[in-house]
């Protein structure tokens, strides 16, 4: 417990900026407390993975960043969440703007029941004034750019007007990432993005996530420790709603400072 704070604050001394920071973040679902005073900082342009056993609060923490938790009426939050130095729980925060800049990828690929092209343009049309009136060439360029970024262009370029729900799960998940890109999010939250995929598709999506590194800050929840180890720069371990340890992935997996982290990594529980 004692190490968590130091570890999360340490990176501040580096030149890297902090993209997401929580301070004393506590959250209750009704009377059940899911997060306890979480202090956490995600460095800009890196991939940070959140690991921990089921129910440890990692998804809850993720969902605080774009405030999607609030859709459930009985959620109460205390403390602070900052995205790029702006308190997102402050009054005057426009949720639609927050969610434009903080994209989210879900556990089950959830492309909209529209064509591939419409899926890519969806967020753009929500947020860019005049998007509907763009010349077709410009819209096509947006679609192509986004699909190229997720390495999907060559597979789907001939069926852009087909339904997105007809794609394979791997392609669907890549599309779900691609549809965020046209509005240039700062942070992308990924909630176990590969857990519905087979190993081959998982590897492909992991590759993709790695490619997006640098341009986007990625916060990745996973229950797959191997994935956290392979596909993240930093890793944070949570247990029972508390942040236990946070550090560079290589260091955390080799020489964890907290015994609970060590036990979890060794597979003693979870």
């Amino acid at each position: 417990m004692t190490t968590s704070k130091d570890d999360s604050v340490d990176p501040l001394t580096d030149t890297q900026e902090i993209a997401v920071r929580t301070e004393k973040l506590s959250l209750w679902y009704g009377s059940f407390q899911a997060l306890y005073d979480v202090d956490f900082a995600v460095r800009r342009g890196l991939i940070t993975s959140l690991i921990g056993p089921s129910g440890c609060g990692k998804s809850t923490l993720l969902r605080c960043v774009n405030r999607i938790n609030e859709r459930l009426g009985y959620v109460r939050t205390e403390g602070k969440v900052e995205v790029l130095d702006t308190d997102v729980y402050a009054s005057g925060i426009e949720l639609t703007q927050l969610r434009r800049h903080v994209g989210m990828v879900f556990q089950r690929p959830n492309p909209l029941p529209l064509s591939i092209r419409e899926n890519i343009l969806f967020a753009h049309q929500l947020h860019e004034p005049g998007s509907e009136a763009l010349p077709k060439a410009d819209r096509d360029a947006i679609v192509e750019k986004a699909l190229r970024e997720v390495l999907l262009w060559d597979t789907v370029k001939d069926r852009l007007d087909r339904s997105a729900t007809g794609l394979s799960l791997e392609e669907q998940q890549k599309l779900c990432i691609a549809r965020l890109l046209p509005v240039k999010p700062k942070v992308i939250l990924m909630d176990e993005p590969c857990s519905a995929l087979d190993p081959k598709a998982t590897a492909a999506v992991e590759d993709l996530i790695w490619q997006l590194r640098g341009e986007y800050t990625i916060l990745l929840v996973t229950h797959n420790m191997a994935q956290a180890r392979r596909a993240s720069d930093e890793c944070a371990f949570m247990l029972m709603g508390r942040m236990v340890e946070h550090g560079p992935t290589d260091r955390l997996f080799v020489t964890p400072e907290d015994t609970r982290t060590a036990d979890y990594i060794e597979g003693k529980y979870g």
Partner: peptide, 9 residues
């Protein structure tokens, strides 16, 4: 959920 998370009203 997908729509809301993209900032749709």
């Amino acid at each position: 959920e997908a729509c809301w998370a993209m900032g749709a009203t």
